[in-house]
Protein backbone atom coordinates (compact mmCIF):
# COMPACT_ATOMS: atom_id res chain seq x y z
CA UNK A 1 0.00 0.00 0.00
CA UNK A 2 1.04 3.55 -0.60
CA UNK A 3 1.83 5.63 2.45
CA UNK A 4 -0.71 8.36 3.24
CA UNK A 5 1.14 11.51 4.30
CA UNK A 6 0.82 12.29 7.97
CA UNK A 7 -0.67 15.78 7.57
CA UNK A 8 -3.51 14.34 5.46
CA UNK A 9 -4.20 11.68 8.07
CA UNK A 10 -4.35 14.38 10.74
CA UNK A 11 -6.68 16.50 8.67
CA UNK A 12 -8.97 13.52 8.02
CA UNK A 13 -9.01 12.66 11.70
CA UNK A 14 -9.92 16.24 12.61
CA UNK A 15 -12.75 16.23 10.08
CA UNK A 16 -14.04 12.92 11.43
CA UNK A 17 -14.00 14.30 14.98
CA UNK A 18 -15.91 17.37 13.87
CA UNK A 19 -18.52 15.25 12.07
CA UNK A 20 -18.94 12.99 15.11
CA UNK A 21 -19.39 16.00 17.37
CA UNK A 22 -21.98 17.73 15.11
CA UNK A 23 -24.18 14.76 14.31
CA UNK A 24 -24.45 11.41 16.06
CA UNK A 25 -25.74 9.54 13.01
CA UNK A 26 -23.36 10.38 10.16
CA UNK A 27 -22.09 6.90 9.40
CA UNK A 28 -23.43 6.72 5.83
CA UNK A 29 -22.81 9.16 3.06
CA UNK A 30 -26.54 9.49 2.32
CA UNK A 31 -27.34 10.49 5.86
CA UNK A 32 -24.50 12.94 5.69
CA UNK A 33 -25.79 14.51 2.48
CA UNK A 34 -29.36 14.87 3.76
CA UNK A 35 -28.08 16.35 6.99
CA UNK A 36 -26.20 19.07 5.16
CA UNK A 37 -29.10 19.65 2.75
CA UNK A 38 -31.72 20.61 5.33
CA UNK A 39 -29.27 22.19 7.74
CA UNK A 40 -29.82 25.71 6.49
CA UNK A 41 -28.27 27.47 9.46
CA UNK A 42 -25.01 25.54 8.94
CA UNK A 43 -24.04 27.88 6.09
CA UNK A 44 -21.71 30.47 7.60
CA UNK A 45 -23.45 33.84 8.03
CA UNK A 46 -20.81 35.76 6.08
CA UNK A 47 -21.47 33.62 3.04
CA UNK A 48 -25.21 34.12 3.33
CA UNK A 49 -24.61 37.86 3.44
CA UNK A 50 -22.33 37.69 0.44
CA UNK A 51 -24.82 35.77 -1.66
CA UNK A 52 -27.59 38.16 -0.64
CA UNK A 53 -25.58 41.19 -1.74
CA UNK A 54 -24.60 39.38 -4.93
CA UNK A 55 -28.27 38.72 -5.71
CA UNK A 56 -29.07 42.41 -5.18
CA UNK A 57 -26.17 43.40 -7.40
CA UNK A 58 -27.35 41.02 -10.08
CA UNK A 59 -30.82 42.58 -10.00
CA UNK A 60 -29.44 46.07 -10.46
CA UNK A 61 -26.91 44.74 -12.99
CA UNK A 62 -29.71 43.21 -15.03
CA UNK A 63 -31.35 46.60 -15.14
CA UNK A 64 -28.12 48.09 -16.40
CA UNK A 65 -27.66 45.26 -18.88
CA UNK A 66 -31.09 45.84 -20.45
CA UNK A 67 -30.23 49.49 -20.86
CA UNK A 68 -26.70 48.78 -22.04
CA UNK A 69 -27.16 47.72 -25.69
CA UNK A 70 -27.99 51.34 -26.51
CA UNK A 71 -24.88 52.52 -24.67
CA UNK A 72 -22.53 50.16 -26.58
CA UNK A 73 -19.31 49.01 -24.90
CA UNK A 74 -20.26 50.00 -21.35
CA UNK A 75 -21.35 46.44 -20.46
CA UNK A 76 -17.94 45.22 -19.34
CA UNK A 77 -17.67 47.76 -16.58
CA UNK A 78 -21.23 47.22 -15.39
CA UNK A 79 -20.55 44.30 -13.01
CA UNK A 80 -17.51 44.80 -10.80
CA UNK A 81 -15.47 41.73 -9.84
CA UNK A 82 -16.67 40.04 -6.62
CA UNK A 83 -15.09 41.43 -3.51
CA UNK A 84 -13.04 39.03 -1.43
CA UNK A 85 -15.08 38.69 1.68
CA UNK A 86 -14.49 35.11 2.85
CA UNK A 87 -12.34 34.07 5.78
CA UNK A 88 -8.78 35.14 5.16
CA UNK A 89 -9.85 37.06 2.06
CA UNK A 90 -10.52 33.95 -0.06
CA UNK A 91 -12.73 34.28 -3.10
CA UNK A 92 -13.46 30.56 -3.46
CA UNK A 93 -14.40 27.76 -1.14
CA UNK A 94 -14.21 24.01 -1.12
CA UNK A 95 -17.50 22.59 -2.33
CA UNK A 96 -16.83 18.89 -2.00
CA UNK A 97 -14.10 16.27 -1.99
CA UNK A 98 -14.54 13.58 -4.63
CA UNK A 99 -12.96 10.38 -3.42
CA UNK A 100 -11.07 8.28 -5.95
CA UNK A 101 -13.24 5.49 -7.26
CA UNK A 102 -16.55 7.34 -6.66
CA UNK A 103 -16.75 8.63 -10.24
CA UNK A 104 -13.96 6.84 -12.07
CA UNK A 105 -13.83 3.10 -11.91
CA UNK A 106 -10.41 2.32 -10.49
CA UNK A 107 -9.53 -1.05 -11.93
CA UNK A 108 -5.88 -1.30 -10.98
CA UNK A 109 -5.17 -0.85 -7.30
CA UNK A 110 -1.91 0.95 -6.61
CA UNK A 111 0.76 -1.64 -5.85
CA UNK A 112 4.10 -1.57 -4.22
CA UNK A 113 6.44 -1.56 -7.19
CA UNK A 114 10.17 -1.22 -7.60
CA UNK A 115 12.31 -0.14 -10.52
CA UNK A 116 13.62 -2.98 -12.67
CA UNK A 117 16.92 -1.15 -12.80
CA UNK A 118 18.62 -1.75 -10.45
CA UNK A 119 16.52 -4.10 -8.31
CA UNK A 120 15.57 -6.86 -10.76
CA UNK A 121 18.53 -6.59 -13.15
CA UNK A 122 20.97 -7.05 -10.26
CA UNK A 123 19.21 -10.25 -9.21
CA UNK A 124 19.12 -11.55 -12.78
CA UNK A 125 22.77 -10.74 -13.31
CA UNK A 126 23.71 -12.51 -10.09
CA UNK A 127 21.69 -15.59 -10.98
CA UNK A 128 23.14 -15.75 -14.51
CA UNK A 129 26.67 -15.35 -13.17
CA UNK A 130 26.16 -18.09 -10.57
CA UNK A 131 24.73 -20.39 -13.24
CA UNK A 132 27.60 -19.70 -15.64
CA UNK A 133 30.18 -20.21 -12.90
CA UNK A 134 28.63 -23.50 -11.87
CA UNK A 135 28.50 -24.79 -15.46
CA UNK A 136 32.06 -23.67 -16.16
CA UNK A 137 33.58 -25.20 -13.03
CA UNK A 138 31.57 -28.39 -13.39
CA UNK A 139 32.72 -28.64 -17.03
CA UNK A 140 36.34 -28.21 -16.04
CA UNK A 141 36.20 -31.19 -13.70
CA UNK A 142 33.64 -33.52 -15.29
CA UNK A 143 33.94 -34.54 -18.93
CA UNK A 144 30.96 -35.23 -21.15
CA UNK A 145 30.85 -38.91 -22.10
CA UNK A 146 32.18 -39.97 -25.49
CA UNK A 147 32.00 -43.75 -25.85
CA UNK A 148 33.46 -45.69 -28.77
CA UNK A 149 32.21 -45.14 -32.32
CA UNK A 150 28.60 -46.15 -33.00
CA UNK A 151 28.43 -49.82 -33.91
CA UNK A 152 25.23 -51.39 -35.18
CA UNK A 153 26.49 -54.90 -34.52
CA UNK A 154 27.12 -54.42 -30.84
CA UNK A 155 24.15 -53.59 -28.67
CA UNK A 156 25.25 -52.35 -25.26
CA UNK A 157 23.58 -54.06 -22.34
CA UNK A 158 21.57 -52.30 -21.02
CA UNK A 159 20.57 -49.80 -23.75
CA UNK A 160 19.07 -46.78 -22.10
CA UNK A 161 17.30 -43.71 -23.46
CA UNK A 162 18.32 -40.21 -22.28
CA UNK A 163 17.47 -39.79 -18.59
CA UNK A 164 14.30 -37.73 -19.16
CA UNK A 165 12.83 -40.58 -21.23
CA UNK A 166 13.81 -43.29 -18.76
CA UNK A 167 10.41 -43.02 -17.07
CA UNK A 168 8.84 -44.03 -20.37
CA UNK A 169 11.33 -46.82 -20.83
CA UNK A 170 10.46 -48.00 -17.34
CA UNK A 171 6.79 -48.07 -18.32
CA UNK A 172 7.80 -50.25 -21.29
CA UNK A 173 8.62 -53.04 -18.85
CA UNK A 174 5.03 -52.99 -17.58
CA UNK A 175 2.83 -52.17 -20.57
CA UNK A 176 2.48 -52.74 -24.27
CA UNK A 177 4.78 -50.31 -26.13
CA UNK A 178 1.85 -48.34 -27.53
CA UNK A 179 0.43 -47.79 -24.05
CA UNK A 180 3.78 -47.00 -22.46
CA UNK A 181 5.29 -44.94 -25.27
CA UNK A 182 2.30 -43.13 -26.70
CA UNK A 183 -0.93 -43.40 -24.71
CA UNK A 184 0.27 -42.66 -21.17
CA UNK A 185 2.66 -39.79 -22.04
CA UNK A 186 0.10 -38.45 -24.54
CA UNK A 187 -2.62 -38.33 -21.91
CA UNK A 188 -0.15 -36.84 -19.43
CA UNK A 189 0.82 -33.99 -21.76
CA UNK A 190 -2.79 -33.44 -22.78
CA UNK A 191 -3.89 -33.11 -19.15
CA UNK A 192 -0.93 -30.84 -18.42
CA UNK A 193 -1.94 -28.51 -21.25
CA UNK A 194 -5.54 -28.53 -20.09
CA UNK A 195 -4.66 -27.97 -16.41
CA UNK A 196 -5.66 -24.28 -16.30
CA UNK A 197 -9.00 -25.07 -17.95
CA UNK A 198 -9.75 -28.07 -15.73
CA UNK A 199 -8.82 -26.31 -12.49
CA UNK A 200 -11.75 -23.92 -11.89
CA UNK A 201 -10.55 -22.89 -8.44
CA UNK A 202 -9.67 -19.18 -8.75
CA UNK A 203 -7.49 -19.00 -5.63
CA UNK A 204 -3.72 -19.23 -5.75
CA UNK A 205 -3.35 -19.70 -2.01
CA UNK A 206 -1.85 -23.10 -1.15
CA UNK A 207 -4.36 -23.62 1.68
CA UNK A 208 -7.27 -23.27 -0.77
CA UNK A 209 -5.98 -25.72 -3.33
CA UNK A 210 -4.92 -28.75 -1.37
CA UNK A 211 -6.43 -31.15 -3.89
CA UNK A 212 -4.75 -29.59 -6.92
CA UNK A 213 -1.37 -29.44 -5.22
CA UNK A 214 -1.65 -33.03 -4.00
CA UNK A 215 -2.59 -34.26 -7.46
CA UNK A 216 0.33 -32.47 -9.12
CA UNK A 217 2.76 -33.62 -6.45
CA UNK A 218 1.68 -37.24 -6.94
CA UNK A 219 2.03 -36.79 -10.71
CA UNK A 220 5.51 -35.26 -10.48
CA UNK A 221 6.65 -37.85 -7.95
CA UNK A 222 5.32 -40.62 -10.20
CA UNK A 223 7.61 -39.53 -13.03
CA UNK A 224 10.52 -38.70 -10.73
CA UNK A 225 10.42 -42.16 -9.14
CA UNK A 226 10.12 -43.87 -12.54
CA UNK A 227 13.06 -41.88 -13.91
CA UNK A 228 15.15 -42.70 -10.86
CA UNK A 229 14.34 -46.41 -11.03
CA UNK A 230 15.10 -46.42 -14.75
CA UNK A 231 18.35 -44.52 -14.22
CA UNK A 232 19.87 -46.21 -11.21
CA UNK A 233 18.02 -49.44 -10.50
CA UNK A 234 18.11 -51.06 -13.92
CA UNK A 235 21.08 -53.11 -15.01
CA UNK A 236 21.88 -55.65 -17.76
CA UNK A 237 18.77 -56.81 -19.57
CA UNK A 238 16.99 -53.87 -17.94
CA UNK A 239 16.59 -56.07 -14.87
CA UNK A 240 16.13 -54.61 -11.42
CA UNK A 241 19.40 -54.09 -9.55
CA UNK A 242 20.68 -52.16 -6.58
CA UNK A 243 23.31 -49.62 -7.68
CA UNK A 244 25.31 -50.07 -4.47
CA UNK A 245 25.52 -53.84 -5.06
CA UNK A 246 25.84 -54.19 -8.84
CA UNK A 247 27.25 -50.82 -9.89
CA UNK A 248 25.89 -47.91 -11.89
CA UNK A 249 24.56 -48.40 -15.42
CA UNK A 250 23.92 -44.79 -16.23
CA UNK A 251 25.48 -42.27 -18.63
CA UNK A 252 24.34 -38.65 -18.92
Amino acid sequence: MTEVPEHLLKRAQAARDRAAGGDADTSTAAADASATADDGPKIPPHLLERSKSARQQADSGAAVATAAPAGGGAVATAAPPPVASGPGGHTQRLLTVVKSGSIQDVKLKPMDKVHVWPHLLIVEFGAALACLTFTLIFSIFVNAPLLELANFNETPNPSKAPWYFLGLQELLTMFHPMVAGVTIPGIGIFLLILAPYIDRNPSNKPEDRKFGISLMTVHLMFWAVLVMIGSFFRGPGFNFIFPWADGLFFEL
Partner: peptide, 29 residues
Protein backbone atom coordinates in the same frame (compact mmCIF):
# COMPACT_ATOMS: atom_id res chain seq x y z
CA UNK B 1 16.21 -30.18 -28.65
CA UNK B 2 18.04 -32.22 -26.06
CA UNK B 3 17.07 -35.51 -27.69
CA UNK B 4 18.10 -34.45 -31.21
CA UNK B 5 21.44 -33.30 -29.84
CA UNK B 6 21.92 -36.65 -28.13
CA UNK B 7 22.54 -38.45 -31.44
CA UNK B 8 25.15 -36.06 -32.81
CA UNK B 9 28.32 -37.45 -31.14
CA UNK B 10 27.59 -40.70 -33.01
CA UNK B 11 28.99 -42.93 -30.28
CA UNK B 12 27.49 -46.06 -28.78
CA UNK B 13 25.62 -44.06 -26.14
CA UNK B 14 24.03 -41.79 -28.76
CA UNK B 15 23.12 -44.53 -31.22
CA UNK B 16 21.41 -46.85 -28.79
CA UNK B 17 19.69 -44.17 -26.71
CA UNK B 18 18.15 -42.83 -29.90
CA UNK B 19 17.30 -46.35 -31.05
CA UNK B 20 15.35 -46.92 -27.85
CA UNK B 21 13.65 -43.53 -28.15
CA UNK B 22 12.65 -43.79 -31.80
CA UNK B 23 11.44 -47.39 -31.42
CA UNK B 24 8.88 -46.02 -28.98
CA UNK B 25 7.74 -43.44 -31.56
CA UNK B 26 7.14 -46.25 -34.01
CA UNK B 27 4.28 -47.47 -31.82
CA UNK B 28 2.24 -44.33 -32.45
CA UNK B 29 -1.12 -45.61 -33.72
Amino acid sequence: LSFTGYLLPWDQLALWAVTVGTNMMGYTP
